[in-house]
Every structure is written in C-alpha cells, then in structure tokens.
C-alpha cells in the first residue's frame, strides 16, 4: 500500500520536476453563472482553446467560448413572466502563471485574461464590450497519454461603460491534448 501511495505521489509530482515547454489544444464545458445580475440566470458554456507554454512557469492561451444565460423571471400581479437570457460569445487571450508545462502530473496555475464579450438577446441591444477575467486552474496530465484533465474557475468583469459592470463566474471542466514537449 505504501509503495502504491509513493508511486502515486511520484507520478503526480512529475509535472513539478519536468519543467519543459508545451503546446496543447483543448475543449471544455461548464457553467456560466451571473453574479449580482437579477436579469440573467445560470446557463451552460462550451469552449475551445490553444495553449503555448514557452517556459514551465509562464504560458499563454487563446480561447473561444459559446455561453448561454438562463431566462430571468419576474412575477407581476401573481403571474410569472420571463425574457430571453441570451447568448454570449467570447474570444480572447490570457496569461498563465504557475505550473503551466505539459509534463505528466498535476499543474496548478493562475490565468489573467482579456476578451471580446458579445451578449445578444431578444429585445435588448447587443452588448459588445471588453471583458477581463482572473481565476485559478488545475490540470492533471496523464502519464504517457498526452491527455490532460483540467478544471478551471474564472471571475469575469465586463465594464458597461456607465460606471457599472457585468460580472460572471465561470466553472469549466475540460480535456486537453498535449502535442508534446518541445
């Protein structure tokens, strides 16, 4: 049992030990959670990304996300009504800091990014703004498979230009394919 645990620890630590560069692509899905927005509800989200890590501590990625908000509801005179929550497309880039290499094992990092955020919904003007986000990520790259299982959290702020902002929390789980260590 001790040998097995030691083997697991050794395997998970490999990512820390092998500090090499990496290129990967991935797909992810999760939840798009509006924060302090009564006119939107939680919806789903999907996305694609490509990551380049020229150093084991710093990397960058570009991404595209297709998200939806759930329909908000109000009750007027005892009747419940709703409007379209709308759909968001977001594409952007982010800086990754932490353990961002592609070696087997666990990788924990922070992401700081900027994106073009476009929210379309029936009855409203399109809301196209620049968004900013920050959040942690964790990826477990499986030994000898070039596959990584990743979980991420993002907190996003999209200034509205009137002194206010739209805020969203995003939670993703995804799979990455690592092309190899350069």
């Amino acid at each position: 049992m001790r040998k097995f645990i030691a083997l697991i620890i050794f395997t998970l630590s490999a990512g820390q030990a092998l500090a090499l560069t990496d290129i990967s692509i991935g797909a992810f899905g999760g939840l798009n959670i509006p924060v302090a927005q009564e006119d939107a509800k939680t919806g789903n989200a999907f996305g694609l990304k490509a990551k380049f890590s020229p150093s084991p501590m710093i990397g960058g990625s570009i991404f595209y996300e297709n998200r939806a908000f759930g329909d908000p509801e109000i009750t007027v005179g005892g009747l419940t009504m709703s409007i379209d929550g709308g759909k968001v497309t977001s594409f952007g880039a982010e800086l990754l800091i932490g353990n961002v290499g592609g070696a087997a094992g666990p990788h924990f990092y922070w992401a700081l990014g900027i994106s073009n955020y476009q929210w379309k919904r029936d009855g409203f003007e399109d809301h196209t703004k620049v968004g900013y986000h920050l959040g942690p990520g964790f990826e477990l790259v499986l030994p000898a498979a070039n596959i990584g299982i990743e979980g991420r959290g993002k907190f996003e702020i999209v200034p509205t230009g009137s002194g206010g902002s739209r805020k969203n929390a995003l939670v993703f789980v995804g799979v990455n394919y690592h092309f190899g260590l350069l």
Binding site: V35, A36, D39, I157
Partner: peptide
Amino acid sequence: GMALLVLIFIAGCVASGTLILVYD
C-alpha cells in the same frame, strides 16, 4: 500581486449589480 488582483476583482464585484424593479 495575485492577492491584490483578486481584491480588485472582488471590489468590482460588490461595487455594482443589475436589479429588476416592478412598479405597479
């Protein structure tokens, strides 16, 4: 630096929100 950024983001979070009012 990360902690500072987190605080800035949290401050932005609580600074404003979107509300729906129904006026009968």
